[in-house]
Design a protein around this nucleic acid. Structure first.
Lengths: 311, 311
DNA sequence: CTCTATCCATATCAATCCGGCATGTCAGCA
DNA sequence: TGCTGACATGCCGGATTGATATGGATAGAG
């Protein structure tokens, strides 16, 4: 296998290097090889040679050599304009990629359960990310855990703040954010508000507002498993689509509800959040998750900020 | 004067060479450094190093290295698209400049006196140039000698076929095309047509159609100088703006006219061209002229074709 | 489970490329 | 006619690039 002349007409044959173009621009702008050599801090013979190489590669004279400097031929003028554009383009690409590599530009989408949008740490995270990386297109989607997981897997979501049934998700990386637990939400006007129950069994006959399993299976199953362990079965009188709906029903006095502690992050009119040992014992870990194959620096900056915000 | 680190932030600092981009494209398209090395006919370690250099220059990882090939990071994908465009651009520039250098593309404007558009050699020249260099924007302007000279000097005309009072024009190059002389144009219906005059003195009492000096001083002065030498002064009864107008007046029977021999190149209805020794003795050299500083290959191709057409 | 094939990374050497220095040549100018 | 400024040429040293040899890690086959 000897080294023959490349038989197939590769599109990238022949020099015309950036350096030559840059030199040529200097020559064109100064109108003199010597002056250009001073400008680019390169000896004059080097420029003479590079320009000549350029002329040979293109098969065209680019300069008219006079006793006092040089002038451009028509081909030289054409090349000059093109060369300026080409070099500009290169620096654009360099800065663009450098920024991209540092996560200063790009795109990140983050899913957050509506409930946790109100948690101070999360709100803090969003605000600080926007402040620190203003040029990144940062999209926040209010989504339940299930859809988040789906969209993370299919790649339409870069990261998610959600409940998981396990820290070990194939194809995903996870990081524990905090431990939620459960609380009791009661109407402010109800007897429970003035006389808080101290154990779950007291609530045997209470009217409960409950969620659908299909909406958020991970959360639902976890809660139900806990209740089975406790041997408690709530008497459900009303169902609500999501946590916000459920809470509004509680506020309306339709019943009481079991909700994630995150819900109490901001006060809601007409609702009192009550602490119960048996509910607080239900550990509800909140996770950050992202595709392990996703290496976008903008995403990892977000993850880094999570480290800052959630110690 | 020692070699310190370049203190001023030159815009063309840092590599990112065409070669590296070309290698990177091969890697991206094959999804493997080894496969790419076979495609570009370069050893694998060389590619490994060039890609790494690219990554260092840009400060960004471009590839994810797996046991079986590599995959692009988001930055890598961005660079891939940019690199393809940049390399395409370079080859475009190369072909464009090569073509330009060979005069296969570009722009040429040629002035021709209306009279000489009908001369077979000139028509031939125009046709052959268009045939041989179809991609050149070739513009032919019907202009008298005076305006041609003006526009040649100011640069809005690349070449001209015209009369000159001297072959020696500052800033212009000239080439003799052919020797015109003068002829007599008479109405076909006139007595002169059936009984041609054999000397100028016979025409002493004839009605002449004449041109304005201001329209084409070079031509006019030359003719007048000749007539002064002959001691002949025509009796002018009518003036015409240009040669075509004059000839149409002759055809209409308004008088007879002295015209360049080139006018007889194509027959005109109602006109008879007559040869007279005294008129043929007036040498009217026809020139090709162009700016000596004009190095456009497309122009010199035209000049070369002139050499072919006019021996 | 081990063995092998494949692919990427590293080290070293040789060739080539590029820039610097010294020098030559030519045109314009006093 | 000598002088100056500008481009061209020859030669040398240093840097860059590619080739060869080799190591390490992983996926697939038996």
């Amino acid at each position: 296998m000897d080294r023959v002349r490349d038989p197939h007409p590769d599109e990238t044959r022949g020099p015309v290097e950036f350096r030559q173009l840059s030199y040529f621009i200097a020559v064109a702008e100064t109108g003199s090889i010597s002056a250009a050599s001073r400008r680019v801090h390169v000896a004059q013979p080097a420029l003479t040679r590079q320009v000549r190489l350029l002329e040979e590669d293109l098969g065209t004279r680019l300069l008219e050599r006079h006793a006092r400097g040089v002038s451009l031929t028509v081909a030289g003028q054409a090349l000059f304009e093109e060369a300026v554009q080409l070099l500009d383009r290169r620096t654009q690409i360099r800065t663009r990629l450098t920024s991209l590599g540092q996560g200063l530009i790009g795109k990140v989408s983050l899913g957050v359960t509506v409930t946790h949008l109100w948690v101070p740490e999360v709100a803090n995270l969003l605000r600080r990310y926007r402040d620190r990386y203003p040029r990144v297109a940062f999209e926040v989607f209010p989504l339940l855990s299930g859809p988040q997981l789906e969209r993370l897997r299919e790649g339409s979501l870069d990261a998610g703040i959600l409940y998981l049934d396990s820290a070990d998700q194939p194809g995903l990386e996870t990081r524990l954010l905090q431990h939620d637990h459960l609380m009791l939400a009661v109407p402010e006007a109800s007897p429970w508000a003035s006389a808080p129950p101290n154990c779950l069994s007291v609530l045997k006959e209470a009217d409960f507002v409950w969620g659908f399993r299909s909406v958020s299976p991970v959360y639902y199953d976890r809660v139900m498993a806990h209740f089975q362990r406790l041997g408690f079965e709530p008497r459900v009188v009303q169902y609500g689509a999501d946590n916000i709906t459920i809470l509004s029903m509680v506020a309306a006095g339709l019943g009481i509800a079991i909700v994630p502690s995150a819900s109490s992050a901001h006060p809601m009119p007409g609702i009192r959040f009550l602490h119960l040992e048996e509910l607080a014992a239900c550990d509800m870990p909140l996770w950050l998750a992202w595709r392990s194959s996703n290496d976008a620096p903008a995403l990892h900056n977000l993850i880094g900020l999570v480290e800052e915000v959630f110690g």
